[in-house]
């Protein structure tokens, strides 16, 4: 069951979670060269913080800042029942 949070609006990102036996983090971004690594890091750090490892995270980014990436991932994790 796929779960999403966020939007494709400017300065936002859409997070889509899909079931997976391992952790997969996939980033597509309009500023991939400049911030692709940073986005990947925020996603992984947040998953670490909440102790979530078996999930596929896709991030479709339209220039979201770190706090937005983090918030959208947490919302998706809660919606998907991965965390409380």
């Amino acid at each position: 069951m796929n779960v999403t949070a966020g939007t494709y609006e400017s300065s936002d990102c859409l997070i889509r979670l899909s079931p997976s036996t391992t952790r997969k983090v996939i980033v597509e971004s309009i500023v991939f060269d400049q911030f692709g690594d940073a986005i990947q890091r925020v996603l992984n750090d947040t998953l670490d913080q909440y102790g979530v490892s078996a999930v596929q995270v896709e991030c479709f980014d339209k220039g979201a800042l770190d706090y937005t990436v983090r918030a959208r991932l947490i919302t998706a994790l809660k919606r998907g029942g991965y965390i409380e």
């Binding site: 500023v31 060269d33 400049q34 911030f35 692709g36 690594d37 940073a38 800042l65 770190d66």
Partner: peptide, 10 residues
């Protein structure tokens, strides 16, 4: 402080 420091594309 908002964006982080960007990596310059090659």
């Amino acid at each position: 402080s908002y964006t982080g420091k960007p990596v310059d594309p090659p």
